[in-house]
Design a protein around this nucleic acid. Structure first.
Lengths: 334, 334
DNA sequence: CCTCGTTATGTAATGGATTACATTATGCAC
DNA sequence: GTGCATAATGTAATCCATTACATAACGAGG
């Protein structure tokens, strides 16, 4: 492997000059600069990353943890984050936690090892190591929460107005004429689900539908959507519309309807959440709350960079715009 | 930040002993070992990653590039790869190339910077830096190709028997009674598509269907599936079945059918490829060639580790089993 | 022609761990 | 009790780039 000393020798200059020519070209006079650049190219020199990082105490790296990388909602967020990271010459390390606390802890420990300069976590739980860091450094801790907003964690976050979005979804169903609605939430441990649920309940209360909202708790998966839709439709007085807190659960719910010989949207309307890339192509095309997935990723990285580069002033919590996208899975009740 | 020297001081031993106690415990006597461990814990010590990596010339990191991280096929492969990497105490850096040569090159350059010990690429193109490395180190070059198999690249690879799988799909349609088949391939630059196409053509030739196979070249996306299905169905003598080289294109094709007032599978059968996580939940549930996605990722990492740990003997090219999964999108022709 | 400020370059310290080699302690055989 | 092998520990070199500080070169102003 070629080192900076090899290049210096080849170009007949000191290592300091090589370093400068490569990372701070203005500090070197023209003749030497091109001499160095030429030598570096000829030798195929690339600065050793570990050495650089050791010396500068910067890894130029961000760790992003997701509960499930193969969920297209998360992978879209990742895409936006990678974009922004790359633009700022950072690289993005992705950790799939499988909702497992041990893995969360492992990824968080990368911060203590200086393996990453900062961390973005998509989820609602913060690993102990990271909690300790927040306790110690407060708003300076290089940790940002994406998608969720859990005030108790004391970290900056980017998310949509979940309660508002959920209320809009209920309003849409109400406007179509639905008066009895089934809701399939995600785990209520997560603020994302609690916020959406409170939005639903607020909207229902406003419209005196309080007793007409049936709630089931799912886990965002297709299977749980399917199973809980069956439950809801087996009620004595079944709902005419289902609002699922993820598109995957909506897809599961529609499968359940089909199983029961019901048509969506003719017999039962279904609203999803997220607007994943298949929501449009699915049949029926899903009515869903669209989250600005790439933008969430991008913004999370930008916020983290603000912290890392000391531009941030205290904690911030940013709300990005969502949009109810009405497609073919909702219609007036029969 | 606590360093090894801090721990050594606290425990009253040398830094060498601390290092040994942590990474090679057997080399240290019991009383000191626990002394060190205790001190390390009390101080919250974690070895600086860059320093370790500089000294050992190992980054314990693998870079995995994918053309599109939000494609659930790729994210499933990633999942498997992360699994295997973590188990071997490596971490996985993921690079989304967006099919862009410049990004591919950027990620490949991580090898020269020793930012990663090895690289796995899902795709058919190898960045110049990586090609140079292969030219120089041959089978020792820490580079593995996942999903595709391009002999000219001289790298080890993991994939399924694409030609065989495609032939099976055609056979399935033939068995159902289809005699005129439309095929929507991926870009023919990639061996994956060429292999599948030759499988299709072989099967067609064997059954004297040579002139009954209409081929269109897509790009694996939902949109191209939709558009090309329209083209195929506008033919004078339209096919009664479509075989798409990705589930996404199959989903697009089914949308096109619906647009034209045709039902899948009653009027036209559709076969996909990959068995992404929505293939089952989609309506109609897709008949598709299932690839062992997680296993491909896992195996690719294992092969790379074999190279990195000098266990590999020359190049290898591993074929994992695929399976034609028959669901609801195929039926006899009308 | 000297001095001072500026620019360009070089020298060497530095970052934090690992590990070859040197040294000391321990145990066993005779 | 001595000698020797073995185990435990310490000392210090090493990995490679960056950068503070020192030095040299140069031009301008007096």
């Amino acid at each position: 492997m070629t080192t900076i000393a090899d290049v210096a020798r080849a170009a007949g200059v000191s290592t300091a000059t090589v370093s400068r020519a490569l990372s701070n070209p203005d500090a070197v006079s023209e003749p030497r600069r091109s001499l160095v650049l030429q030598a570096a190219k000829a030798l195929g020199y690339a600065p050793n990353y570990a050495a650089k990082s050791l010396r500068t105490t910067r890894s130029q790296r961000i760790i992003l943890t997701v509960p499930d990388i193969s969920n297209p909602f998360f992978s879209a967020v990742i895409r936006g984050a990678e974009e922004a990271a790359l633009a700022a010459r950072y690289s993005l390390l992705i950790g799939d936690t499988h909702h497992d606390a041990e893995r969360e802890e492992y990824y968080a420990s990368m911060l203590s090892r200086r393996e990453a300069d900062g961390m973005i976590f998509l989820g609602h739980r913060l690993a102990p190591t990271a909690v300790a860091l927040v306790a110690k450094e407060g708003a300076e801790a290089p940790i940002v929460n994406g998608c969720e907003f859990e005030p108790g964690l004391n970290v900056s976050s980017v998310h949509i107005a979940n309660a508002v979005a959920a209320a809009e979804a209920v309003q849409h169903l109400y406007d179509l004429g639905h008066r009895r609605i089934g809701v399939i939430t995600g785990p209520l441990l997560s603020p994302i689900s609690r916020d959406r649920l409170s939005g639903v309940q607020g909207a229902a209360a406003g419209r005196r539908l309080w007793n007409e909202v049936l709630v089931r708790t799912g886990d965002f998966s297709v299977d749980s959507g399917e199973q809980l839709a069956h439950e809801l439709l087996s009620e004595d007085n079944p709902p005419t519309a289902l609002f699922c807190f993820s598109d995957e659960m909506a897809i599961g719910a529609i499968a359940a309807l089909r199983d029961r010989g019901l048509d969506c949207p003719r017999d039962v309307s279904v609203v999803g959440f997220d607007d994943i890339r298949y929501a449009r192509a699915f049949h029926p095309a899903l009515t869903t709350v669209s989250q600005p997935k790439e933008a969430i990723g991008r913004k999370a990285v930008e916020m983290l960079l603000d912290i890392l580069e000391k531009r941030a002033q205290g904690l911030s919590s940013i709300t990005l715009p969502h949009q109810l996208v009405v497609r073919a899975s909702t219609a007036p009740p029969p």
